[in-house]
């Protein structure tokens, strides 16, 4: 590109998500099913991370769905190996309950820490993490489910338990406490490949002053463009669409670029 030919602009991010269970990447068919044992084995997390790194992924999220002590030590090893070979941003989530847990993952090579149920149980963890490592490090992940014509509630424990909290209100509160990014996962859309929930994504993106990552429901390239444009998301996160070879990260970015969405090619 010729210097100064177009004004510089921050790129929309495309983020593959790796659910790690017992050291392997797995994928549940729909929300919560992974925890119930309905898993498809996708492969070695580091091998997949390297593949997505080659494809031009902007970031990667590793999610520990084991959430046991043994699972966590496996996770540290996965992050270390991925960080040693992929010189790109890594986010780690799942089972992080304290600032010490955060530090362990950061030292292993993670750049951002994603918390969900532990933030709901102890919102002060958001503040403590942000104070220690900066807001840019603390991601609050929200599992939202539509419970009425115009109401989305936050669910915890892998989407099994309603907290009764309004999703957008929780996002605003999390940001006030110090969250530097929100990942919004639509429970209704997750795993359906029917498209992201545009309404709640946009509502949250317009209510908070931090980046919002849309997750759950990516089934086609058009869905990705939709949630970035109509949903006002700053990034898209997806798993199955990449894991099962339907599209590469490069395909997604080429498509987004063709829709005049700024991406890093």
């Amino acid at each position: 590109m010729e210097r100064g030919s177009i004004p510089p602009v921050i790129a929309k991010r495309v983020i593959p998500c790796l659910d790690v269970h017992g050291g392997q990447v797995t994928r549940g068919v729909q929300f919560g099913k992974a925890e119930a044992g309905e898993l498809r084995n996708v492969g070695d997390p580091v091998a997949l991370a390297l593949r997505y790194n080659e494809q031009g992924a902007d970031e990667m999220v590793f999610f520990d769905i084991t959430a046991t002590a043994h699972g966590r030590s496996t996770m540290v090893d996965v992050i270390e190996r991925a960080a040693d070979q992929c010189f790109m941003p890594l986010t780690v989530g799942g089972g992080i309950k304290s600032v010490e847990d955060m530090y362990t993952m950061l030292r292993a090579g993670a750049d951002k820490i994603s918390i969900n149920s532990s933030a709901l149980a102890n919102p002060d963890l958001i503040r403590a993490g942000a104070e220690k490592y900066g807001s840019q490090c603390i991601v609050v992940s929200i599992d939202a489910k539509r419970v009425g014509p115009d109401r989305w509630e936050v669910f915890s424990h892998g989407g099994r338990k309603s907290t009764g909290r309004d999703a957008a209100a929780w996002a605003v509160e999390a940001v006030a406490l110090g969250a530097g990014e929100i990942v919004l996962n639509s429970i209704d859309a997750d795993g359906t490949k029917a498209g992201f929930d545009l309404v709640i994504t946009r509502r949250i993106s317009e209510s908070v002053g931090v980046p919002v990552v849309a997750s759950g429901g990516a089934g086609s390239l058009a869905h990705m463009a939709e949630v970035l444009l109509e949903g006002r998301a700053d990034a898209v996160l997806a798993a199955s669409i990449f894991h099962f070879g339907q599209h590469t990260v490069g395909d997604v970015k080429q498509f987004l670029a063709s829709k005049n969405i700024p991406v890093r090619l």
Binding site: E181, P211, D234, A235
Partner: peptide
């Protein structure tokens, strides 16, 4: 403007 800036931006 979303703050923090998180992501890939360009160098001039």
């Amino acid at each position: 403007l979303k703050v923090p800036q998180i992501g890939w931006n360009q160098l001039e």
